[in-house]
Structures are given as structure tokens and as C-alpha cells.
Design a protein around this nucleic acid. Structure first.
Lengths: 130, 130
DNA sequence: TATACTGTATATATCTATATACACAGTATA
DNA sequence: TATACTGTGTATATAGATATATACAGTATA
């Protein structure tokens, strides 16, 4: 299976962090099921055009968080996570992102009415992913 | 004058980039007027509990963008920027932040209706800044 | 038991952030 | 008008984080 992760190099956020955040989202949202075998570090590194070491760091970090199980020579698997924990993570991640957007809008002196209007515009013009 | 900039160390975004983005917002939103003398690099570094070099990099980067003018021995000043350019930057920055939030919400399998509802909730519960 | 796949460890380059020492501009005052 | 002082930005050297290539070790299986 091909993992739908997108990274951007001109982003200020470190590469390993972008990948880690997106992979965590895929697991916590249930798009990757418990027990599933992930692509090998080499395969994913090749997909994302980055180094094997970067992917390894991501897998290792997520294993330390309890989201993955890795066995040398065999591969890396999605661990079991309680449904409660998944729901909690999802909501927190989304709210954090929204509060960040609101913070930036307010920094630019937009008032709440304008912010809401702009957001609904952004939401309705759905762009395609290629 | 004290510049209202907030940084967080546990953020994945580099320090100089956080500061640069916020200072740019203050200039582009008109909160810092043309010709205004900014705090010295030492003063701002002390305010934000970071190194003088980090602030220097921010001032230098923004000077290269044409937002600041700096004179050795004298200080760093806000440059003149066309109103059109300011408006353009403001809108782009805010829309970028909102699209990022929407992207994350969709990654977590929220549908547009839920996203809008959550956003309005976040917007209405205005938290105080200390 | 080859061999081709997994993850792992070591060494190197670049980016981020810092401390320290230096050079330039303005101002008070002897 | 010298001169000392305080403020400004600037340059060099160092430590840590991030990303890489390359070589190493464990596991499955033909």
C-alpha cells in the first residue's frame, strides 16, 4: 500500500516532523489499521525523496509514542491504540491548527466576522490534489 | 515601544522564523508605521530571551525583503511599503494559515460541516493573552 | 545456505542558535 | 575640539539539531 504523505521542502518545519505528524494523523484517524505492515524505511524514503535515516527517525519516534511496533529484519507495524485515545488526539490536533489560523488572522488585524467569512470561503473552494 | 512578539521553544518552527513572521505581520498590518525605530537587536533579544545573532538575522532577512532599513551605529527602521503590497500580504498570510488548518482537519477525516462548526466554536471562545 | 529483504550504526555536511570580541555613530563634557 | 562613554550593528568561533550516504546486522525464504 502507498502511504498518502506530502512534504514540502521550503516549509520551515523540519522534514522528519512533517512526516511524523502526517503519519500520526493517518494512524489516529483509523486510515491505517492495527497490525498493518508499513512500507519499509527504504521504500517510504524513496517515495518521499528523502533519506532512509529521516524515515527511520520517524518510525522510531512513533514507536516510542506507542503508535508503531518494529521488528528488525521483518518490518514496522501499526500498534493497537484505544479508541478514546484516537478521538482525543484527532480533536486536539484539529483544534490546535484552527487556533493557530485564528491567531495569525488576528495578528493581521482581521475582526472575527471577517475571519469567519474568509474561512468559509476557503472551505468551500475545495482544491484537487494531484 | 515594546514589540508584541511571542515565541515558543517547543514549537518545531525555528526561532528566527517565528520572530520574522510575526514582525512581518506587525509591519504589513500597519501596527508599526513607516520610519519607526525598532528596538535594538540587544533589547529585543533580551525581551525574547534569545541571542542577539538570532534577532540580527531576522532584521537582516526583513531588510532583504525591503521591509526594514538598518544603519550601523544608529538602528533599524521600518521602510515604506505600498498599501497594495500590504493588503496582498495580509490576505495571503491569513488564507495560507486557514488552508493549512483545513488540510489538517481533512487529514483527520472530518467533513466540511464538522470543520465549519468546530472553527466557529474556536473563534467564539476567545482566550485572553497574558 | 545463498540471497534478498528488513532495521541499525557510524561518519559527514548543512542549518540553527549561541557566546564573545570587534567596529561604527552619536552625545556629553572637560 | 579632543576625548571618553554609551549606544548601535558586525564578524568569528563553537555547540547542537537536522539530513544525508555508506557500511553493518538480523530475518525470511527460495
Amino acid at each position: 500500500m502507498r502511504i498518502p504523505i506530502r512534504v514540502s521542502l521550503d516549509h520551515p518545519e523540519p522534514l522528519y516532523h512533517q512526516i511524523k505528524t502526517q503519519l500520526r494523523a493517518l494512524i489516529m484517524s483509523g486510515q491505517l489499521e492495527q497490525g498493518m505492515l508499513l512500507p519499509s524505511i527504504r521504500e517510504l524514503a524513496n517515495d518521499l525523496s528523502c533519506s532512509v535515516i529521516t524515515i527511520r527517525r520517524v518510525y522510531q519516534d512513533l514507536e516510542n509514542e506507542g503508535l508503531l511496533k518494529t521488528r528488525q529484519g521483518t518490518g514496522t507495524f501499526v500498534a493497537h491504540i484505544e479508541q478514546d485515545e484516537k478521538e482525543k488526539h484527532k480533536l486536539e490536533a484539529v483544534i490546535r491548527a484552527m487556533e493557530e489560523a485564528i491567531k495569525i488572522a488576528r495578528q493581521h488585524q482581521y475582526d472575527d466576522e471577517e475571519i469567519q467569512k474568509l474561512f468559509i470561503q476557503c472551505l468551500s473552494k475545495r482544491e484537487r490534489e494531484d
